[in-house]
Design a protein around this nucleic acid. Sequence first.
DNA 1: CTCCCGATAT
DNA 2: ATATCAGGAG
Length: 214
Amino acid sequence: MKDESTNQKKSRITDIIKILKEEYPNSSCSLKYESPFQLLVATILSAQCTDERVNKVTSVLFEKYSNAESFRKLSNEQIEKEIFSTGFYRNKAKSIKNISEEICEKYDGIVPKTLESLVKLRGVGRKTANVVLGNAFNIPGLVVDTHVIRIANLLKFVITKNAVVIERELSKIIEKKEWTNFGHLCIDHGRAVCIARKPNCVKCGISNYCPSKI
DNA sequence: CTCCCGATAT
DNA sequence: ATATCAGGAG
């Protein structure tokens, strides 16, 4: 596994994706939303928080406030109270308030559909932008979250925690049409088998492709 | 790099 | 007690 070439990486990750697809055939976004804006808010809330908890919060939240216009009218304190249990609630409330204003003023209430525009929104980084592009707009988005960072390193496709570098390196070896699903597969696999605290290599279907196999 | 931060599993 | 959860800004 020394000095693996780009073509060798392409071949290995293609095999890995094929296996993961068989293991997680229904892999998809686990956040609940009914519009690009709702997915944007849910993804901001998902930072360092389980999707399960985010869904509990948003199921109540989106019932009361469904779009950028309605969120814009809320105070930071009102938003904080609603999202408190997701953690980082001050920063998240500030971000939600801000993107609601920006989207109303600059984009007429419509969430922009490019990575560059999304990332310019305060509180929206590449990870969140790629989630929205891939899931709400069906535009390939390579999400590099905590699971992708961990799994890409264990598989030795990269040796860095830098998300921008990982996104760049993975984009070279994964077909564009697979970008969005790759994120979902890593999240499913990361939650069920390649768990952060204790990877379950015995039950791992791609352990034969993993240099870190215990 | 640090800070933001509650909920949960171990 | 501690690590971890679909991160982002300074």
